[in-house]
Amino acid sequence: MDDEAVIPISALQHYLYCPRQCALIHIEQLWAESQHTAEGRLLHDKADKPKMERRKGVRTVTAMPLAQPQLGITGVADVVEFHTGEDGVEHPYPVEYKRGRPKAYQADEVQLCAQALCLEHMLSCQIPEGALYYGETRRRTVVPFDTALRALTCETISATRAMTVSGRTPSATYSAKLCYNCSLFDLCQPRLLHRGESVQHWLHAQLKGE
């Protein structure tokens, strides 16, 4: 697949949260730090350092590079645990670290499932489940990679790729809950921008006005 059509796994989570947010980050290359993103970054610090540990029949690899060329996705897994079965074979088990608590929508589950799809391709195996670790609850949530989640993940990959390849940022749709929790709120200006107008266009207009 062409490099332009390959998308990062992180974009899938952004797309499910808000397609416009995804476009601002992955098309217009905009980013802003917030308390939530800073806390998430600190939570990932430990997992983001590549290393390998082994204890009690489990080999743990952090910051493992991932790719699935057929689906056109690439990324890095926070943690992949390799559990040794009774047959002596290692079975991969992806674990993704998140701040906060489990969410109503499935963005985190899709991101984890995409990691599993990469591992299945890379290691020629089947992965039935993984886990999400939430910093606020300090507990793992088991995520079964069932048919429905796999289908949603593939649909999200296709939708995200179609948007990024088009190079078009979706118009803003204001939502009090989602928008105020977004670190890009000030850049997005969901209540002010005209339909279909890009953030870059808005910024240039502001600079001209000054």
Rank of each mutant, 00 (worst) to 15 (best):
E81S: 08
Y180K: 11
C125M: 10
E33G: 00
K177N: 12
E4F: 07
T160M: 09
R168Y: 01
K51E: 05
P50Q: 04
C113H: 07
A131L: 05
T60D: 01
F185P: 02
E39T: 09
I9N: 07
C113G: 09
R150Y: 04
R59P: 00
T147Q: 13
D2N: 12
H194M: 06
E28Y: 02
T164H: 07
S10H: 07
A116V: 05
A148Q: 11
D45K: 13
K46V: 04
M1R: 03
C18Y: 07
R20N: 06
A32I: 00
L184W: 05
S166Y: 04
L203C: 01
V142H: 11
A5V: 01
F145N: 01
S158R: 12
L43W: 03
L184D: 05
W202M: 13
L12G: 05
L30K: 15
M64Q: 14
H83W: 11
G85D: 14
A67L: 02
A151K: 12
D186P: 01
C154M: 12
Q106H: 13
G85W: 05
I127P: 06
T160R: 08
G72L: 00
Q115G: 14
Q111R: 12
T141R: 13
H201N: 07
M163L: 15
T169D: 02
Y97V: 07
E120H: 10
L30C: 06
T141I: 10
S124Q: 15
P69G: 00
T173Q: 14
P69D: 00
I7S: 01
P94R: 06
G40F: 06
H194A: 10
A172F: 04
I9W: 09
